[in-house]
Design a protein around this nucleic acid. Structure first.
Lengths: 295, 295
DNA sequence: TTTCTGTTATGCATATTTGCATGGATAACG
DNA sequence: CGTTATCCATGCAAATATGCATAACAGAAA
């Protein structure tokens, strides 16, 4: 019913989480609550607003027309809440606290993690969470505070600084080269197995643009995971494209076609504009910038 | 501290209310909570975000720089919450529930309240709250659901329908007219005491535009309250300007200068676009529109 | 059909939050 | 300079919300 008292904002968050997660149970996991609690909070919101938000059909909930109408505004509320958290993170001048860094899996394993002891030394109060994901994390929604990427960020809210440029070159295991021969010219690559890093089409386009005579037929094995790619190379499944710093850390790989210049891979350190003002974030960003430039 | 868990939205509302009310104590009244609760919720938000929002200086709180930075986003959250309540009110198809109607004090006493029995008859489940205030209620923030005004609403979100035009004319108590004489021409008004309805300047401007020879010197008594104005007229303090339907309900008043045509006072019924879709609101609006047109 | 998985709703013991009462402190005022 | 009014913080009992366990149910798979 509609009494004078406005509704409980916690219930609005419960509603939003339920819609976004698709069910009360999953929303409960996201929010760190339990399904009965969410059930009651959503029911409470319905009572407070005097409307029916979900149709309880069978095993799951489906939004009613009314629920859909309200959803836009609830999303606005959620977006504002995210901005609050983001701005607060930027304002926080405490040196203790968590910093989440996202990077590709290979980057996380081969570069980021080895740097953590030194960071721990500099700032013992900072807890670091490493988010190893190849998809680009959403810094705006604060899935991560800082990201290591290979592209300049396009969003105006994100600040990026280029901290270096790596070169991706061709590598293969000795076992593969012994079996299939060691290519001496770029043209010979047409006869070789290329290990693909997803998305394959983009990889091929890049290689062709660099003058390598490879097509989709050269690609027998592919993956979206840099560590799997490394393992494929070690297993002698073909010739892979990898940035030098990665390849040097993988034992048993030989550089193929040393005269080929390779593909430049820019290295960007990206953070949301708001969080840049945080002392904690600054320390981590500065540390990473310096460390990555030295690699 | 900055742990992974996002903050409690209830705490954000506590913060917003505290800023808008100016103190924890007053915010508690607004939210229907107590000061200690607000105190702890705000402290909890500060802890959750890892920032200091208020400087506890002396007896009161002042926003810190950080607090001011976050405030914009918190206001956004609050605005979204208001839109949720508004849209929900519009979606509610229940015939039970509260409808808040705002009107000027005189309108509330002389027109609105006498209509309530008939409305009760038509829709027994509807609770009506009458907001008698001369300042224009903020329908966007849902201080009221429906407003009776004398102006067409300019905000595009508000829908208004003109339900009639009253004429405001000159009235005075017999005691006054016996003492000071009964003016027969407009020109004689210059020698009479005019009772002012605040803001006086606007009233005078209107009267002068209608050809009445009155200045600020004619106004000895003034008020911002229509009921007080009526009492002034009854006490014989001067000649007042009042809409016919009001004056007719006030005993002991005589119409002055019956030939003067009076000032047209348009009558508007205004509601927010969103709430117009509510069955409950529609019933009340339709009832009022018909009843007001008949007066 | 039966089983299994994933869903929401409800009873009950437990945690947490809230309100009341109080203390301490500050600014305004006579 | 004392008095008063107003404000915020904290201890403690009561009210409230939460989590656990469980029931009921629907759909997919065996």
């Amino acid at each position: 019913m509609d009494n004078g008292t406005p509704f409980d904002w916690t219930q609005a968050r419960a509603f939003l989480a339920t819609v976004e997660a698709g069910s009360l149970s999953q929303a409960a996991k996201v929010l760190g609550l339990t399904q009965p609690t969410l059930s009651r909070q959503v029911a409470g919101l319905e009572a407070a607003l005097g409307v029916v938000l979900f149709e309880r059909v069978g095993r799951s909930l489906v939004l009613t027309e009314t629920g859909r109408d309200l959803l836009d505004h609830v999303r606005d509320m959620g977006a504002a809440a995210e901005r609050i958290a983001l701005a607060a993170a930027g304002q926080s001048q405490a040196l203790e606290g968590r910093v989440t860094i996202s990077a590709s899996d290979a980057m996380a394993v081969h570069v980021l993690t080895p740097l953590l002891p030194a960071l721990q030394e500099i700032a013992p109060g900072i807890e670091v969470e490493v988010l190893a994901a190849n998809r680009i994390s959403d810094l705006q929604r604060r899935e991560a505070d800082i990201a290591i990427r290979h592209l300049r960020p396009v969003e105006p809210e994100l600040i990026g600084r280029q901290v270096g440029t790596w070169r991706a070159r061709l590598y293969a295991a000795r076992s593969y080269l012994d079996r299939r021969g060691r290519p001496e010219t770029v043209a010979e690559l047409a006869q070789h197995a290329i290990l693909g890093f997803a998305p394959v089409d983009r990889l091929l386009a890049t290689l062709v643009a660099e003058g390598l005579p490879v097509t989709r037929r050269n690609v027998r094995h592919m993956t979206d995971n840099g560590l799997v790619l490394a393992e494929m190379m070690q297993q002698g499944l073909g010739i892979g494209v990898a940035p030098e710093p990665f390849a040097q850390r993988i034992p048993g790989l030989d550089l193929v076609l040393p005269d080929w210049p390779g593909i430049p891979v820019p290295l960007w350190l990206v953070a949301h504009r708001e969080v840049q003002t945080s002392r904690r974030m600054r320390i981590v960003v500065d540390f990473l910038a310096e460390a990555l430039a030295r690699i």
